[in-house]
Amino acid sequence: MALEQEDVRRAAHLARLGLNDDEAERYVDDLSRILEMADRLQAVDTQGVAPLAHPLDATQRLRADEVTEANQRERFQRCAPAVENGLYLVPRVVE
């Protein structure tokens, strides 16, 4: 399956990536080749094979419901660009 520039731009938007025209053109090519690879995988007959949710043949371990994390707000907020009254500040979100 070959992609169009428009598909790449839409995927970039969903991933919040800013692409210039050169990059967009390059990704049309790169991503199309990845999809070709996927097409080859799709061609394999998988009838009767259960879908795989995880490559490891193991099941999820559960943890006991206990509070084990102390408040480290100050440390975490040291690497945030803007904080106020304990809140992380981000560019205004318009609903």
Binding site: R63, D65, V67, T68, E69, R73, G86, Y88
Partner: peptide, 28 residues
């Protein structure tokens, strides 16, 4: 629950902002 679904941070209501958000909750 006492703690979060995927981390050991507290779920108590009404705490000071971000005092119950650990590295897992922050997605570090």
């Amino acid at each position: 629950t006492q703690s979060k679904i995927f981390s050991g941070a507290s779920t108590a209501f009404g705490a000071e902002p971000n005092t119950q958000a650990c590295a897992v909750d922050l997605g570090l």
